[in-house]
Simulated scan of single mutants.
Amino acid sequence: MRSTPYPVDLDRYFARIGYAGSRSPDLMTLGRIVARHAASIPFEAIDVLLGRPIELSPAAIDAKLIDRRRGGYCFEQNSMLQRVLCALGYRVEPLMARVLWMRKPDAPPPAWSHMALRVFVEGVGYLADVGFGSCVPTAPLLFDRTTPQPTPHEPFRLSRTFEGYLLEAQLGRDWLPVYEVSPMICGEEAYRTANIVTSTHPQSLFRQNLLVALTTEEARKVLFGNRLTIRNRNGTVTRQDLDAPTIQHALTGVFGLAFQDDWRRIITRIGSGAETTIAIP
């Protein structure tokens, strides 16, 4: 997350996401990489639930997400994508956003705590984000277009606000706010501080709940607490409450994570009903 990001091993990264296409820094390549990343590297913050620090050094991120085939949350996923895109020749600017997804309309404004990217293709800026979890955009989105923009999943739209741009997703007939993103380039120190707060504050979502998400070509798959929700592209939705053994099966079979023994105390607690869950659209 430096102004000149550390390089990444592109061959290892592309093998991780199952991408074998063009490496030209154009819009088609960008879209395919975003879609393959979202379908291959789960959003998860299991280490936060275990009380472990989230290390944002490039070496730590690559070892976790590529070598150990783990997932991560926004600071890990999007900082790695930033380095990948820079290595391919894109101009990339790191941005900060505040999450509005599933917040009550009358709730106070949240903190700026989400990392996103502005990627330029032939001088035109696009929003790229592979680290938002349950409603991650699966295609680059034009910043200066207010009309709905299609993706392989839901349509999204960006509209100007006093402080930046409001990202919304269309679910059925409703447009739901996802986050507000600032157009100002964000520095490394701001990300470091936001990461510490997000991973350690007692009220952080990730300190209180198990959240794992993966968006494949066929469906969005979300595990929140013990509730597994699968929303297919055709609009059908299935929800299932899981016990500890089926949570473990979902982590490995649905999300492709290599199960670790120290996760058992988390899934035992959640699978026993000791944790509450909320419905995710």
Rank of each mutant, 00 (worst) to 15 (best):
residue 271 G to Q: 13
residue 192 R to S: 11
residue 51 G to K: 13
residue 67 D to K: 06
residue 94 P to Q: 05
residue 207 R to T: 12
residue 130 V to T: 07
residue 117 L to D: 00
residue 132 F to T: 00
residue 248 Q to N: 09
residue 5 P to N: 09
residue 172 G to Y: 02
residue 267 I to A: 05
residue 148 P to L: 00
residue 23 R to C: 05
residue 50 L to K: 04
residue 166 L to W: 08
residue 134 S to M: 12
residue 253 G to D: 13
residue 73 Y to V: 03
residue 220 R to H: 06
residue 93 E to V: 15
residue 144 D to M: 05
residue 147 T to N: 06
residue 14 F to E: 01
residue 236 T to H: 12
residue 236 T to C: 10
residue 78 N to E: 04
residue 96 M to Q: 01
residue 202 P to Y: 09
residue 242 L to V: 07
residue 100 L to N: 10
residue 239 R to V: 10
residue 195 N to Y: 07
residue 35 A to F: 03
residue 133 G to Y: 07
residue 79 S to N: 11
residue 115 M to P: 00
residue 228 L to I: 10
residue 15 A to S: 11
residue 141 L to K: 06
residue 177 P to M: 01
residue 102 M to V: 01
residue 53 P to K: 08
residue 21 G to F: 11
residue 265 R to V: 13
residue 8 V to K: 10
residue 249 H to R: 11
residue 231 R to Y: 11
residue 236 T to M: 14
residue 215 T to P: 04
residue 229 T to H: 03
residue 172 G to R: 08
residue 10 L to S: 03
residue 106 D to K: 13
residue 135 C to K: 00
residue 221 K to L: 08
residue 87 A to K: 12
residue 2 R to C: 11
residue 190 A to H: 01
residue 145 R to S: 04
residue 135 C to G: 02
residue 135 C to D: 03
residue 10 L to N: 05
residue 256 G to N: 05
residue 212 V to E: 04
residue 64 K to S: 00
residue 76 E to L: 02
residue 175 W to P: 08
residue 3 S to V: 12
residue 75 F to E: 01
residue 145 R to N: 02
residue 130 V to C: 09
residue 193 T to M: 05
residue 173 R to A: 15
residue 241 D to T: 15
residue 214 L to Q: 04
residue 68 R to K: 11
residue 193 T to K: 07
residue 216 T to M: 04
residue 142 L to A: 14
residue 202 P to D: 11
residue 130 V to D: 10
residue 165 Y to A: 03
residue 198 T to S: 15
residue 47 D to V: 10
residue 162 F to Q: 15
residue 80 M to Y: 07
residue 124 V to F: 06
residue 124 V to Y: 10
residue 232 N to Y: 13
residue 165 Y to K: 03
residue 127 L to S: 00
residue 102 M to T: 05
residue 183 P to Y: 06
residue 166 L to P: 01
residue 82 Q to Y: 15
residue 52 R to L: 12
residue 256 G to A: 08
residue 225 G to E: 04
residue 110 P to V: 08
residue 47 D to P: 14
residue 181 V to Y: 06
residue 243 D to M: 04
residue 165 Y to V: 03
residue 191 Y to S: 13
residue 128 A to L: 00
residue 21 G to N: 04
residue 225 G to D: 02
residue 39 A to D: 06
residue 208 Q to H: 03
residue 30 L to A: 15
residue 248 Q to T: 07
residue 9 D to W: 01
residue 25 P to Y: 05
residue 51 G to V: 12
residue 99 V to A: 07
residue 105 P to V: 01
residue 262 D to H: 13
residue 128 A to P: 00
residue 207 R to N: 15
residue 212 V to S: 06
residue 44 E to R: 05
residue 197 V to K: 08
residue 191 Y to H: 15
residue 165 Y to F: 15
residue 124 V to I: 14
residue 173 R to G: 13
residue 116 A to M: 06
residue 142 L to D: 11
residue 276 T to Y: 06
residue 54 I to D: 08
residue 137 P to F: 10
residue 246 T to A: 14
residue 80 M to I: 01
residue 192 R to F: 10
residue 52 R to H: 14
residue 91 R to W: 02
residue 105 P to Y: 06
residue 218 E to V: 08
residue 258 A to S: 13
residue 117 L to K: 05
residue 142 L to C: 02
residue 41 I to V: 15
residue 107 A to I: 13
residue 86 C to T: 14
residue 109 P to L: 15
residue 101 W to R: 04
residue 157 R to A: 12
residue 247 I to A: 04
residue 268 T to G: 12
residue 17 I to S: 00
